[in-house]
Every structure is written in structure tokens, then in C-alpha cells.
Design a protein around this nucleic acid. Structure first.
Lengths: 330, 330
DNA sequence: CTGTTAGCGCCTTCAG
DNA sequence: CTGAAGGCGCTAACAG
């Protein structure tokens, strides 16, 4: 048999459903012993309120939707950690989903309608305009590292250009000249901006940029490293647009008998937890994605509380110089 | 202004809401051009169905709830990967939540009522009986590595006893005698069972078991390793109940000048992605948690489709012997 | 304090 | 093929 509803409780307790609702939601205006009676009847019946129905009538779900390119993986897992911590602290539930590509993304987003009070979207490679077209404009939406949008949404933007530039500076300062950049996929905002920062810095130093295109996956780091090994005049530094590609390359270089950083320096981007465990520890740019995630939840909550927020907040990554570029020290 | 509802569409299209519903949900019995008219009006109004209301009237949410001890971290992130892949393939949405302790856990579970069609719970340290008390018995619930329950739920159980036993065999075979076990927290099912398997194997070989109690976090591995370093007759192998603790210990041993595995072998449990990246690569037991997650979704879906399933399915971890216990080879 | 009455947004019989 | 009406489970005025 189906589950007990508020009506069943009301009948069993000989009161109206309104009284049950008030008693169970602690609305004060119920006689103390009646309240207890209702509570015990509810417990006896194993009554559990139907939160779906509840949020329909309250027009409030107490949940926020989160849309990430991936749910797993070191980087997004970190983002999730921050989001989860903050949401939990605020008593908000999370409706999580990954993109699974553009098509599936809009479908998922439609699903969120009526189930969440606000949205956090991280989509470096999908035009959020298209995504949001399927959603009520009234739904507060925080964007993280998304392509430009015309609508006034609160946003987080990572200063990829400056960060990539800084990494090149670091490599040049440690004597590298033939610095190759392994980029993320074309069309991805973060990837494009890192290429731009890299190229600008190289040019400024009179060095010629050389970009290999990857896809942010470990395997493309592996492939890039193998390609580099075949060169006659080998690069003396590889700067990958994320850590997983850098690590993939690191392994290949070492397996081929090169020593890192003596023969070739390797640097990544993101500072995923794994970065400090590989040998040698990976030099990278710390983005602090967990903090961004947490703050995104706070901003969403603030909007729900009535505040308005259309600010673009810039995040400046910090360099983490480790052994993979500065042999000797760690 | 609020978002358009089905009523707004009906009014604008000069039809009844029933017709709008039928037209938009592809119910065949609508004149072709009327259907198109409705669709275009809906599009013009930017109408997006309110899935919350929809599932209330359908008594079907198309979502499944997932409850994990943590959402981040290497192990649960892997579990999520499997769950997500399968759910996505079946067009199911995911409502994810972590436990945040017992109290918060039941609260979250109540939240799930009315929002999901089924539940997947992984809770090695919480009595699910207590958890499920707050939920309708009619909600299909798949349990992964939970303490025993009386109710007939489909379950996955990891054969931790046999796996821990096998790991001890491996270490003994490679000449180790003073094998210390660093366990997970007391009261955690997986932890207890691994202790049992370890102890049984040690005793069988006439070796004396020695168990240090950890908590599955990297720091407790660090601490345990430091404690071991102070011993007069040092252990020659450390078998940690999960990979993160093993890795924490690995780092400490090496930093103290010991070489692994020559001076001391180190083994973990889980085979998280990180395990193969540390130096030396970590010997561990592969649980295949992603596969379990995917299968859990399938079982939940099958139950929703009407099948009955109260089977306890056993999962046998596989040993992954790597350089941290068998120096030389990898 | 408590019961009655409308909905929240949608779907689905039941008539026409 | 289409419209009217009832209901999913719950909450919030509005009366008593």
C-alpha cells in the first residue's frame, strides 16, 4: 500500500489536515497536547511529508541546481566539495547534474525547472545563452567561467590570461626558452584564454609560441608528450592547460628516460589534489575552485534573500612552484 | 513577472489546458495543425513545464536519489562516475547528497521523499534501518556496503574479509612478517571486516596481528607512519584499509629516508585513480566501485519496472600488485 | 486555537 | 478530437 499522507494522519488523529500541517511544522498556534497527539499519530503511521507537494504549494524547493561539465574527476570533484559544504551549512539540498553535451544539457536544465530555487552553472564550452533560453528568467543563476552572456547574471571569471602569462614568466625565469603549450579544446573559454596569455608572454620575451591542442584529458597529455619526444630540437618546457594533461605528459617523459625538470620542465593548471603527489610534484596554478563553488552558493542564497547581484567577480589564480619546474627545491 | 504556466499557453492558444498538455506531451489524439499551433505559442511564451508539479500528478519523478558518505574524494567520486553514467543512459536525473553525519542524513532522506522514484544508499557506518525508518517502505532502495538490515532490500556487499586476507597472503608471499594493519574507523562495516580478514590471515600464518586505528583520511596515514617510525623493531609492511591512508604513510616513510618497498612495503585498498600515480605505484585491492554504482542504478530501474529484487550481491575485490610491495617490477 | 476552502501546475478520466 | 472537472499532497488565508 502507498505511503501515508497528511490526510491519513488527520483522519487518524481526528483533526483537520490544516491542524496536522500546523502541528508538524511547529506553527505555535496549536494546543500543546493536541500537537503531541498529532505527532505521535504521525509517527505511528510512519508519515513522512511529501516534499515535492510541499514545495509546489510553497513555491520554494530549498534546493539549488548545479550543472557541471563532469561530476567526477579531480577538478570538478573539488568544485563540488566547496558547493556541498556551503549548501549543507545553509540547509540547502543539491540537485546535481553534468552536461553530457549540449543537447542533454538543455534537457537536464528543463528538468530543474520547478525543482530548484536557483542554479549554478559551470560551462566553459557552452553558450549559456542557449542553455538559459529554456529556463524562466526569474530563476537566479550564478555562472562560473562561462562564455559571455548578455543577461545580467552574477558571474565568476578566472583570470586565465594573466595566470598563463605568469606561468610563462616563471618558466622563462628558470631559464626555459622552448616552451610549448598544450591547450584545452578549442571553443572552451578557459582554454582559449590560457592560449592567449601564453602567446602574449612568449611574444613579449621574443620567443615563438607553439601550441599543441589537447582536450583536458590525461590521454591527450600522453599523446602530446610522445609527439614532443620525436622532435629533433626538443622543447625544454611543457606548459599544459590543466593538471591531468601535465601529469599524463610527465609520466611519458620519465618513462622515456628524460628527467624532469632537468631535461624538460612540466607545468599544469588547476592545482588538483593529485598535483602534489606525483613525482616530481607538479608546478601549477592554483584556482581555488572549491572556494569559488562555496561562494557561488552564497551568492545564489543572497539573491534568493532578495539582494540583487550582477557583478562579474574575477578570480586570480596563484602559482604553485614545485619540483617539476624548479629541480632541487620542492 | 513569474514564469508562464500551462494555463497561460492555453489562454494564448485559445484551447483548453488539457489540449495543451496533450499537444506538448505528444499524445497523438490532437489535430496536427492544432498541435503545431500550441507548440509555437508555447515556444513564443517561453513556456517550460514545471517538472515538480508534473511529477506530483504523475506520481513519478524520473529521478533517483543517491546518498553517499561524501561527494568528493577519489573513492566516492568514482562511485558517482558509475552511477551518473548509467543514470544518464537511462534518462534518469540524480538527486545527490552526502551524509554529513547521522542526524543530517535522516533529514536529507526525508527531503528525498516525493522527489525521487528510488534510492541508492552507501553508508558503511550508519545503520540503514534507522535511516529508512524515515522513508516510505514503498520506495525502492538499493544498499551498498551497509550494515545488516532486516528489510528485504537489494544489496551490494564487498567481500572485505577475503580481500584483506588475500592482501596479507600477498605480503607474506613476498617475505614480509611484521605486517601492521592501519584500519578505518570502528563501527564502519568495511573497516571491521578488513580487520577481521587481516587478523585471520595473520593468525593462520602464525604471525601476530597489530592493528592501528585510522579514519580513512590521509592524515591518519601520516600519523600512523610517524608512530611506526618510532618503533625499535620496525614493521616491514603496512597494510592500510584504504588508499588515502596508505599514500599518507608512503610519503612519510620516504621523507624519513626509508625506501619503499625495500625497507617497508605499503599496501592500500580501493584502487583509487591516484594509486597508480604515486611513486612507487601503490599495491591495492581494486573494488570497482564505479561498476557497482552503475549496477545499482540498473537494479533500481528494474525494480521501478516491476521486478522484485532482494538479492545480496557479493563483490570480490581484485588485487593490484604494484611497486610499493614488489620492488623492481611494476 | 481549529476547521473550511482555495489553490500551487499539471495530468487524466469522463463527457461531448 | 476537445473541453470540463477532479485530484496529486500540502500550505495559507479566512472564518469561526
Amino acid at each position: 500500500m502507498a505511503h501515508a499522507t497528511i490526510r491519513d494522519v488527520a483522519r487518524a488523529a481526528n483533526v483537520s489536515i490544516a491542524t496536522v500541517s500546523r502541528a508538524l511544522n511547529g506553527h505555535g498556534n496549536v494546543r500543546a497536547n493536541l500537537r503531541e497527539h498529532v505527532q505521535s499519530v504521525a509517527a505511528a503511521l510512519g508519515y513522512v511529508p511529501h516534499t515535492g507537494a510541499r514545495s509546489l504549494s510553497l513555491a520554494r524547493t530549498n534546493a539549488i541546481g548545479v550543472m557541471l561539465p563532469d561530476l567526477h574527476g579531480e577538478f570538478y570533484s573539488e568544485a563540488l566539495r566547496g558547493i556541498d559544504a556551503e549548501a549543507s551549512a545553509r540547509g540547502l539540498q543539491l540537485l546535481l547534474s553534468n552536461m553530457h553535451g549540449d543537447q542533454r544539457g538543455t534537457e537536464t536544465l528543463r528538468f530543474m525547472r520547478g525543482r530548484v530555487d536557483a542554479l549554478i552553472i559551470m560551462a566553459p564550452d557552452i553558450d549559456p545563452e542557449r542553455l538559459l533560453a529554456h529556463l524562466p528568467a526569474s530563476l537566479p543563476t550564478v555562472l562560473i567561467s562561462c562564455p559571455d552572456v548578455s543577461a545580467d547574471h552574477p558571474q565568476f571569471r578566472i583570470d586565465n590570461v594573466a595566470a598563463a602569462d605568469a606561468m610563462v614568466e616563471h618558466l622563462v625565469a628558470s631559464g626555459r626558452r622552448r616552451i610549448v603549450h598544450l591547450s584545452g579544446p578549442r571553443g572552451n573559454r578557459d582554454a582559449e584564454e590560457r592560449i592567449a596569455g601564453y602567446s602574449a608572454a612568449m611574444t613579449r620575451h621574443g620567443l615563438s609560441p607553439r601550441v599543441l591542442t589537447g582536450d583536458f584529458e590525461e590521454e591527450s597529455g600522453t599523446a602530446a608528450a610522445q609527439a614532443l619526444l620525436g622532435d629533433t630540437e626538443r622543447a625544454d618546457a611543457l606548459f599544459a592547460a590543466n593538471d591531468m594533461m601535465a601529469i599524463g605528459a610527465l609520466v611519458v617523459f620519465q618513462r622515456a628516460g628524460l628527467s624532469v625538470p632537468e631535461d624538460i620542465a612540466v607545468a599544469g593548471f588547476d592545482d588538483i589534489p593529485l598535483a602534489r603527489f606525483v613525482t616530481p610534484a607538479l608546478t601549477t596554478m592554483r584556482v581555488g575552485i572549491a572556494e569559488i563553488g562555496a561562494e557561488a552558493v552564497s551568492r545564489a542564497a543572497a539573491i534568493l534573500a532578495g539582494e540583487s547581484d550582477t557583478e562579474i567577480r574575477w578570480v586570480a589564480p596563484q602559482i604553485k612552484a614545485r619540483a617539476s619546474t624548479i629541480g632541487g627545491a620542492a
